[in-house]
Design a protein around this nucleic acid. Sequence first.
DNA 1: AAGGGTGCCAACCGCACTTCG
DNA 2: ACGAAGTGCGGTTGGCACCCT
Length: 174
Amino acid sequence: MRKPCCEKNETNKGAWTKHEDQKLIDYIQKHGEGCWRSIPPAAGLLRCGKSCRLRWVNYLRPDLKRGNFGQDEEDLIIKLHALLGNRWSLIAGRLPGRTDNEVKNYWNTHLKRKLLQMGIDPKNHHIRPTTAKSFFSNNQERNSAEDNNTRVLDSMSGPHPESFAVSGLPDLNL
DNA sequence: AAGGGTGCCAACCGCACTTCG
DNA sequence: ACGAAGTGCGGTTGGCACCCT
């Protein structure tokens, strides 16, 4: 059995303070992201390396966008999720300034529900005939959508249709 | 005003994968 | 080739904020 990544009784847990954030930012600006395990003692933080990495990647990194997701980002997430499943880090990699945690949270809180309302199964992106019927009858867009359990990649209103290959799948260069 | 319910997001946990000696 | 250590990832949870009654 693997040892825990850090001595839990010797580290802080819970929300990060501004003071801790600043220490981590200062250290990484000086020394770079290097070895996470060595960062907490070197930076004077009572946190485990994992916690530092998570805080930096999800919150402190200077290139993070934050704020609401745009329609184009939303559509891209849905398309990528249809292709990749719950590979959040891969999906986030296609969204500049977004983190896997952010994408995952957004999916679980917004997009999942949105797809369900549209009559789409968020797990496999297949049309769910019962709910889809009412949704599409309102929208008059996909009258034949429920035929043979069609995939819905092409039903999204993505802003970059030119980026899709002939097969209907985006050129993701994964 | 209060309290209960719900949604959201930051952070934790544990497993899987990668790297290194 | 193998095992230990380090890192990354996805699932889950805790707690705060907001809304509704």
